[in-house]
């Protein structure tokens, strides 16, 4: 019966902590630049593949097919490079904020969004590190709530130490340890 003896006095909204005044922390500088480098490698690889396909001497193909190939491959390469460049722009705009009782993550290039996760609702935490992350000593923090897999709270590109500190902070947080007592 959560509602029966519930008492919550009115507060002036202006006195509440404000999420519009978050003190935003940048992600590791290596994160955006590495993503850009990886993207550049992918574009380069695509270029090489297209080049080989176009100038390969093994199979005789008609002029028509060669023309189409040129068109399709250049379209793909232009789109991929655009995605990479926009991705870089988006990456350098990502930021997070840790407050005493909640954690926030802002992202998005055109569609800006700020996700706020109260620490008391956290179910469990994971640090994820792919091969590239391990190489450059970064980590991705994943925070799971009961909101479901669609709404996993994620902060990518954290320096490993920061990520571990954040993880430790959340685990030892009184809101989490007192959860069901």
């Amino acid at each position: 019966m959560p509602q029966s003896n519930f008492n919550n006095p009115m507060m002036d909204v202006a006195d509440l902590p404000q999420i519009q005044e978050l003190d935003k922390q940048r992600l590791s500088e290596k994160y955006a630049s590495t993503n850009l480098k990886v993207g550049a490698c992918v574009v380069l690889l695509l270029l090489i593949i297209a080049f080989i396909l176009y100038f390969q001497p093994f199979i005789e193909v008609s002029q028509n097919i060669r023309q189409n190939l040129l068109f399709i491959s250049s379209a793909i390469i232009i789109i991929v490079s655009l995605v990479v460049l926009l991705g870089y722009q988006a990456d350098i705009r990502k930021s997070y904020t840790l407050r005493d009782l909640d954690i926030h993550y802002s992202s998005g290039l055109f569609f800006r969004k700020t996700v706020s996760q109260p620490i008391t609702r956290i179910q469990h935490i994971e640090l994820k590190r792919g091969p590239i992350d391990r190489k450059i000593n970064l980590a991705k923090l994943q925070v799971f709530s009961a909101g479901g897999a669609m709404h996993t709270f994620e902060i990518p590109g954290l320096p490993l130490e920061t990520a571990q500190q954040l993880r430790q902070y959340i685990i030892e947080h009184k809101d989490v340890t007192n959860h069901e007592k």
Partner: peptide, 26 residues
């Protein structure tokens, strides 16, 4: 009961002082 909140805004919405909000519940 809310698990997580999301604040969403495009540049255009910002100019008009509008925003969307998403409440994530279990």
């Amino acid at each position: 009961k809310v698990q997580q909140t999301k604040f969403l805004q495009t540049e255009l919405m910002k100019r008009r002082e509008l925003a969307s909000v998403k409440f994530v519940l279990a």
